[in-house]
């Protein structure tokens, strides 16, 4: 299992950031290259700019912990995957967003982690501009 982790400090409250990150239907607002999203129950499908549609299972959405977890189920050849996003307060007006990726096969680790890096940078810019 390859395990990767990235984080970013956002100059906004944890509640404000969680309102966006914790909403599975809002992912296109902050994750680049995601152009459409559909959520039905615990199933989410995301259409990428490449035309590929990622299929995901939502595993955890806990407002009290501000934690969102999901699994990629296709069409990428994922044997095992867990994406975890934690929004952790750092005072009243600042928080840190920690995005972890655990995945098999290893070859996907850098691909997913690279996209996560873009997403966190975009999230910070989006939140702090608003």
């Amino acid at each position: 299992m390859a395990t990767m982790r990235q984080s970013v400090f956002v100059e906004r409250s944890a509640d404000a950031v969680w309102a966006l990150v914790g909403d599975p239907a809002s992912v296109t607002a902050w994750f680049p290259q995601m152009v459409a999203v559909q959520v039905e129950g615990n199933q989410r499908s995301i259409t990428l700019a490449s035309g590929m549609t990622l299929l995901e299972e939502i595993v955890t959405r806990r407002d009290d912990l501000r934690r969102f977890q999901y699994r990629l189920t296709g069409p990428l050849p994922v044997e095992s995957h867990l994406g975890t996003i934690d929004v952790i307060p750092d005072g009243q007006a600042r928080c840190v967003v920690v995005y972890s990726t655990d995945v098999i096969p290893h070859a996907l680790a850098y691909v997913l982690d690279g996209a996560v890096g873009d997403a966190l940078a975009n999230l910070k810019a989006f939140m702090e501009a608003g």
């Binding site: 680049p32 290259q33 990428l48 700019a49 490449s50 590929m52 990428l76 070859a107 691909v111 690279g114 996209a115 873009d118």
Partner: peptide
């Protein structure tokens, strides 16, 4: 730039 690029980055 990398080949493996499902997100078309």
């Amino acid at each position: 730039e990398p080949f493996l690029d499902p997100f078309l980055r």
